[in-house]
Protein backbone atom coordinates (compact mmCIF):
# COMPACT_ATOMS: atom_id res chain seq x y z
CA UNK A 1 0.00 0.00 0.00
CA UNK A 2 2.66 2.47 1.08
CA UNK A 3 5.01 1.26 -1.66
CA UNK A 4 2.89 3.27 -4.13
CA UNK A 5 4.56 6.45 -2.84
CA UNK A 6 8.10 5.22 -3.30
CA UNK A 7 10.15 7.07 -5.84
CA UNK A 8 12.59 5.65 -8.36
CA UNK A 9 15.14 8.40 -7.65
CA UNK A 10 15.12 7.71 -3.92
CA UNK A 11 15.33 3.99 -4.50
CA UNK A 12 18.26 4.28 -6.90
CA UNK A 13 20.21 6.75 -4.76
CA UNK A 14 19.72 4.61 -1.65
CA UNK A 15 20.66 1.47 -3.54
CA UNK A 16 23.92 3.18 -4.50
CA UNK A 17 24.55 4.68 -1.06
CA UNK A 18 23.81 1.72 1.19
CA UNK A 19 26.91 -0.35 0.28
CA UNK A 20 29.13 2.65 1.02
CA UNK A 21 27.38 3.26 4.35
CA UNK A 22 27.89 -0.39 5.26
CA UNK A 23 31.56 -0.32 4.29
CA UNK A 24 31.94 2.83 6.39
CA UNK A 25 30.26 1.06 9.31
CA UNK A 26 32.67 -1.85 9.01
CA UNK A 27 35.54 0.63 8.80
CA UNK A 28 34.42 2.36 12.00
CA UNK A 29 34.28 -1.02 13.77
CA UNK A 30 37.59 -2.29 12.44
CA UNK A 31 39.43 1.01 12.81
CA UNK A 32 38.24 1.64 16.36
CA UNK A 33 41.76 0.88 17.51
CA UNK A 34 43.38 3.95 16.10
CA UNK A 35 40.58 6.43 15.40
CA UNK A 36 37.37 7.50 17.10
CA UNK A 37 34.81 4.75 16.76
CA UNK A 38 34.34 1.19 17.79
CA UNK A 39 31.67 -1.43 18.14
CA UNK A 40 28.83 0.77 19.34
CA UNK A 41 29.25 3.50 16.73
CA UNK A 42 29.93 1.15 13.83
CA UNK A 43 27.02 -1.06 14.82
CA UNK A 44 24.66 1.90 14.78
CA UNK A 45 25.90 2.93 11.30
CA UNK A 46 25.36 -0.62 10.01
CA UNK A 47 21.91 -0.73 11.59
CA UNK A 48 21.06 2.66 10.04
CA UNK A 49 21.97 1.33 6.60
CA UNK A 50 19.40 -1.46 6.98
CA UNK A 51 16.81 1.01 8.25
CA UNK A 52 17.51 3.19 5.18
CA UNK A 53 16.92 0.14 2.99
CA UNK A 54 13.56 -0.36 4.67
CA UNK A 55 12.60 3.33 4.36
CA UNK A 56 13.59 3.68 0.71
CA UNK A 57 12.20 0.35 -0.47
CA UNK A 58 9.69 -1.40 1.73
CA UNK A 59 9.43 -3.70 4.68
CA UNK A 60 9.36 -6.81 2.54
CA UNK A 61 12.73 -5.93 1.01
CA UNK A 62 14.31 -5.78 4.45
CA UNK A 63 12.55 -8.96 5.55
CA UNK A 64 13.86 -10.74 2.47
CA UNK A 65 17.45 -9.71 3.19
CA UNK A 66 17.26 -9.97 6.96
CA UNK A 67 14.59 -12.27 8.34
CA UNK A 68 13.65 -11.73 11.98
CA UNK A 69 15.17 -15.06 12.93
CA UNK A 70 18.51 -13.94 11.55
CA UNK A 71 18.27 -10.64 13.46
CA UNK A 72 17.58 -12.49 16.70
CA UNK A 73 20.48 -14.81 15.96
CA UNK A 74 22.78 -11.81 15.43
CA UNK A 75 21.53 -10.20 18.67
CA UNK A 76 22.64 -13.19 20.68
CA UNK A 77 25.70 -13.96 18.53
CA UNK A 78 27.36 -10.64 19.38
CA UNK A 79 26.96 -11.11 23.12
CA UNK A 80 28.11 -14.70 22.70
CA UNK A 81 31.28 -13.61 20.86
CA UNK A 82 32.05 -11.18 23.68
CA UNK A 83 31.35 -13.56 26.54
CA UNK A 84 32.88 -16.47 24.62
CA UNK A 85 36.13 -14.57 24.17
CA UNK A 86 36.15 -14.02 27.92
CA UNK A 87 35.68 -17.73 28.54
CA UNK A 88 38.35 -18.54 25.95
CA UNK A 89 40.82 -16.47 27.98
CA UNK A 90 39.63 -18.35 31.05
CA UNK A 91 40.27 -21.70 29.33
CA UNK A 92 43.74 -20.59 28.22
CA UNK A 93 44.68 -20.01 31.83
CA UNK A 94 44.11 -16.28 32.30
CA UNK A 95 41.44 -14.24 34.01
CA UNK A 96 38.03 -13.62 32.48
CA UNK A 97 38.49 -11.20 29.51
CA UNK A 98 42.28 -11.22 29.99
CA UNK A 99 43.19 -11.05 26.29
CA UNK A 100 46.89 -11.40 27.02
CA UNK A 101 46.45 -15.17 26.98
CA UNK A 102 45.26 -15.15 23.36
CA UNK A 103 48.88 -15.15 22.24
CA UNK A 104 48.76 -18.93 22.69
CA UNK A 105 46.37 -19.10 19.72
CA UNK A 106 47.73 -16.39 17.44
CA UNK A 107 51.29 -15.91 16.23
CA UNK A 108 51.76 -12.60 18.08
CA UNK A 109 53.22 -11.57 21.39
CA UNK A 110 51.22 -10.99 24.54
CA UNK A 111 50.80 -7.25 24.04
CA UNK A 112 49.58 -7.49 20.46
CA UNK A 113 47.18 -10.26 21.44
CA UNK A 114 45.41 -7.70 23.65
CA UNK A 115 44.84 -5.66 20.51
CA UNK A 116 43.37 -8.75 18.81
CA UNK A 117 41.12 -9.39 21.81
CA UNK A 118 39.87 -5.79 21.72
CA UNK A 119 39.10 -6.17 18.02
CA UNK A 120 37.21 -9.40 18.70
CA UNK A 121 34.93 -7.87 21.28
CA UNK A 122 34.39 -4.75 19.12
CA UNK A 123 33.06 -7.07 16.42
CA UNK A 124 30.77 -8.72 18.96
CA UNK A 125 29.47 -5.37 20.20
CA UNK A 126 28.97 -4.20 16.60
CA UNK A 127 26.93 -7.25 15.64
CA UNK A 128 24.67 -6.95 18.69
CA UNK A 129 24.11 -3.19 18.31
CA UNK A 130 23.35 -3.55 14.58
CA UNK A 131 20.85 -6.36 15.15
CA UNK A 132 19.15 -4.61 18.07
CA UNK A 133 18.75 -1.37 16.08
CA UNK A 134 17.13 -3.22 13.17
CA UNK A 135 15.00 -5.32 15.50
CA UNK A 136 13.64 -2.31 17.40
CA UNK A 137 12.93 -0.48 14.14
CA UNK A 138 11.14 -3.49 12.63
CA UNK A 139 9.03 -3.99 15.72
CA UNK A 140 8.09 -0.31 15.92
CA UNK A 141 7.42 -0.03 12.18
CA UNK A 142 5.18 -3.04 11.90
CA UNK A 143 4.13 -4.55 15.20
CA UNK A 144 0.94 -5.86 13.67
CA UNK A 145 2.48 -7.36 10.54
CA UNK A 146 3.74 -10.91 10.32
CA UNK A 147 7.36 -10.89 11.40
Amino acid sequence: MISRFYDVIIQTVCRLLIPFIQVFGLYVIAHGHSSPGGGFQGGVILGASFILLCLSHDLQELRKRMPLKMILLFCSLGVMIYAGLGFLCLLLGGDYLDYGKLHLLFPVNEIQSRSIGIFGIEVGVGITVMAVMVSIFLNLAAPEAEN
Partner: peptide, 10 residues
Amino acid sequence: ETAVPNMVTS
Protein backbone atom coordinates in the same frame (compact mmCIF):
# COMPACT_ATOMS: atom_id res chain seq x y z
CA GLU B 1 50.38 -2.63 27.46
CA THR B 2 47.79 -3.11 24.72
CA ALA B 3 49.39 -2.01 21.42
CA VAL B 4 46.30 0.12 20.74
CA PRO B 5 46.91 3.79 19.91
CA ASN B 6 43.36 4.83 20.78
CA MET B 7 43.28 5.26 24.54
CA VAL B 8 39.48 5.38 24.68
CA THR B 9 39.14 2.00 23.00
CA SER B 10 41.71 0.37 25.24
